[in-house]
Design a protein around this nucleic acid. Structure first.
Lengths: 321, 321
DNA sequence: CGACAATGGTTAAACGTTTAACCCGTGACG
DNA sequence: CGTCACGGGTTAAACGTTTAACCATTGTCG
């Protein structure tokens, strides 16, 4: 690897000068500048982030801690984060903690070793990291009290669903609500209930997990207690429900309507195409990075929670053909 | 940030000793070991990767360069890579180059600055990086001559499809083949043709892109030239084709059967559930890391191409109900 | 003409580790 | 008893940068 001192030697100048031309830190005469630059180019010089980081105390790196990269929700936000981060001259180190809080703890240690300048964190549950990292942290999707965060307006999403259900003329509804440990699930549920008020009869309202299979009691409820419309905790739940119903001979959406939440990439390809609430994936990632960058530049200040608008996506599943 | 010398000071020993206990590099008496360890713990010491990297010349980091994180194909391999890499004590820095060879070039520079010990590379096209990085590179999915790589047995996959088509009793077939710039597309096509031999009549065989919309000529061919079965370049193409056909009033799979390739996460949820060839996503990632680790430990030797077996997934779309 | 600022450069220390080279007792062995 | 090996330490250099503190030369201005 060629170093700055190698360049200095060959160009007959000091390392300080080389550093100055390479970073534009101080004025350097055009001739030396030119000289140094060509020597650097010829030697194929690549600066060492380690050395720079060690000296400056800034690593020009941010860490991304996510619970599960295969969750269809995440790739788009990760992509947006990566892009924004890199545009700002930072590198991205990423760790997937497989929905395990222990691995998550290890993740914080790992990014600590890298002395990252900031951390984007999609928490597996909503408890603050221990010990608190020294770099600023901004959460995505799942707010943690005391930390900066960005999330979608799940409550408004819930209301949008209610509105659509009422608009479609449904009279009875079944709810598969997400785990109440999740902020998003609570908010969606709250918004839905608010919106439904007493205009539609809620025949049942049972808890499910966000992914995985439907629990047995939920399955039997779905199959045995007929309603006009079922609202799923998220798209995956809605899709599983649709499958279950189809398999049992029901015609969707005419016999029973379905609505999801998230607008995962394949919501439009399932049968029937899923009506759902779209989260602004990319914006989520972008805003998180913007907020993080602000905090890096200027730490302190009250934690801020950015709530991004969602969008009702009317496809076929929520109303009779 | 607490440093090794801080610990040394408080424990009344030299930094060398601290380093030795923390890394187990040299024998240290139980008492000093104990002492140093508790001091380190109390101070919440976290080693600095920059310093270590600078001194040792190894960064304990690998770079992952991918063309597009939102491609449904990738999250599973990225996840596998991340896990394996981290198990081996490395960190993972990741860059998404948005299918752009210029960004890809920049990506190599970025990981170069980090002095990564190895690179996992999913190339956007199949031309070698310029200049060649000094760290070992292993490609995933898309082999590059002269480089180590791991890929799926696309040819065998093509043959499996042929077999399934013959088994289903189809007499005519249409092929939507992928861009011939891609190794995978070429191999699939080759295997398919081999397998079909003269047992089934190929009515048409037109090129398409892997994602995006179907080109106009492909659309009209699909709609106008009836065949028993259409084989898509990959799942996304197959799914778009199914949509197109359904929209035009055809009943799938009875009027026309469809098969895909890849087994992306939602292949089973579309209508009709897609018969396809599954690539071993996780294994792809794992093998790539294993190979990379071998190369890091022991560079040199002939480039190796690992070809992983694929699996035919028979769902509903490839034969009459 | 003297003082001074500006310009373009250099020197050297420092960042937090690792590690080769050295040092000092102590017990074993011939 | 002299020598040697070994266990358990220390010292100090080095890794590749950045950057504060200097320094020399030149031109400007009162």
């Amino acid at each position: 690897m060629t170093t700055i001192s190698e360049i200095a030697r060959r160009a007959g100048v000091s390392t300080a000068t080389v550093s100055n031309v390479l970073n534009g830190t101080k004025a350097v005469s055009p001739e030396t500048r030119e000289l140094v630059e060509t020597v650097a180019r010829e030697l194929g010089y690549t600066p060492s982030r380690s050395a720079r980081s060690l000296k400056t105390g800034r690593s020009a790196t941010v860490g991304l801690i996510a619970p599960d990269l295969t969750n269809p929700f995440f790739p788009a936000v990760v992509q947006a984060v990566e892009r924004k981060v890199r545009e700002a001259g930072y590198g991205l180190i990423i760790v997937d903690c497989h929905n395990d809080t222990l691995e998550e703890k290890a993740a914080f240690e790992l990014v600590g070793e890298y002395r990252v300048d900031g951390i984007i964190w999609i928490p597996v549950d909503e408890t603050p990291p221990e010990p608190m990292p020294s770099a600023p942290v901004v959460t995505v999707d799942r707010p943690v009290t005391g930390l900066d965060g960005v999330t979608s307006d799940h409550r408004a999403g819930g209301r949008m669903i209610a509105e659509a259900i009422i608009g479609a003329g449904h009279e009875t509804v079944g709810i598969l609500r997400g785990p109440s440990a999740h902020h998003s699930a609570r908010e969606r549920h709250r918004g839905l209930l608010d919106g439904l008020a007493d205009k539609v009869r809620i025949v049942w309202d049972v808890p499910v997990f966000f992914s995985l299979e439907l629990p047995d009691d939920a399955r039997s409820t779905i199959l045995e207690q007929a309603v006009d419309c079922i609202v799923g905790a998220n798209d995956q739940v809605a899709i599983r429900t649709a499958q279950l119903l189809s398999a049992s001979g029901q015609k969707l959406p005419d016999d029973v309507a379905i609505v999801g939440f998230d607008d995962i990439p394949w919501a439009e390809f399932v049968h029937p195409p899923l009506s759902t609430v779209r989260q602004p994936y990319r914006r989520l990632g972008q805003s998180a990075v913007e907020l993080l960058l602000r905090r890096i530049a200027d730490p302190g200040g009250e934690p801020e929670l950015i709530v991004l608008p969602v969008e009702w996506i009317a496809r076929a599943s929520h109303r009779r053909g």
